[in-house]
């Protein structure tokens, strides 16, 4: 039957029936859970970020608690979600064409050009994205490649926390992604339908029932 495993979460000794995620283990001892929880298993919201040390390992790794199995003798610390004031605010509508995107990177993320290549962001990413390369590609103006690197980013902000230069890599990646969509995506079928609606040539009629 179910094996009971013991681990340590935020300084508490916790016992839980395996298999369970770290998040399920964190709820098992009756502690009120009001933060570091969101999608509970899908691994898309980035809320349950934590530091994990497995038995016999010296290295501490980052993980999302909802998608990581609780293991015996594991040590876990949740990282509270903080929201410091954004140092560089931009308005996506103000980036008006792709000629300006490099300028926008320099202006809104001036630290990005000073990346120390310490790989702290790569090690911090629980999704295994090549964050540092994404920063370099953004600075170099290779925006499509940068956008591809950040495609599956869940915005957990661990790279932002890890970066000693204060680059905010995930937010840089998101600005590049947003600018590309806002400046290049012009679907012809959508444009035609919007024209039809604006001309009054297409309206849903609540009375005209089959």
């Amino acid at each position: 039957m179910d094996e009971i495993i013991h681990l340590r979460i935020d300084g508490r000794d916790v016992a839980v029936a395996a298999p369970a995620s770290i998040l399920q283990a964190a709820m098992a001892d009756g502690t009120a859970l009001t933060a570091n929880v969101g999608c509970m298993g899908q691994g898309v919201c980035g809320a349950c970020r934590c530091l994990v040390r497995r038995e016999g390992e010296k290295q501490i790794a980052t993980a999302l608690a909802c998608e990581t199995r609780a293991e015996a003798a594991m040590q876990v610390s949740f990282i509270v979600y903080f929201t410091p004031d954004k140092p560089h605010r931009y308005d996506i509508a103000a980036i008006q064409d792709l000629w300006q995107l490099s300028d926008a990177v320099d202006r809104h993320f001036p630290e990005a050009a000073h990346c120390r290549h310490c790989s702290g962001c790569d090690r911090a990413c629980p999704k295994g994205l090549s964050v540092q390369q994404g920063v370099a590609l953004s600075v170099a103006g290779d925006f499509a490649a940068a956008a591809a690197i950040f495609e599956q980013c869940v915005m957990c902000n661990l790279c932002t926390l890890a970066c000693p230069e204060g680059i905010w890599p995930n937010h840089l990646g998101l600005m590049v992604r947003r600018a590309i969509a806002a400046l290049t995506l012009r679907p012809s079928d959508l444009i035609r339908r919007l024209n039809e609606i604006e001309r009054g040539a297409m309206t849903p009629d609540a009375t005209e029932k089959e």
């Binding site: 996506i92 992604r177 590309i180 969509a181 995506l185 679907p187 012809s188 959508l190 609606i197 849903p204």
Partner: peptide
């Protein structure tokens, strides 16, 4: 009735959508 305008609004905010063809002008 608002659906197509909502998609345009999302694109203006910077949301990507899958395209049926390669991303060229005229793509659907």
């Amino acid at each position: 009735g608002q659906a197509p305008a909502i998609i345009r609004w999302l694109i203006q905010l910077g949301m990507h959508f899958d395209l049926a063809d390669s991303p060229t002008p005229g793509a659907r």
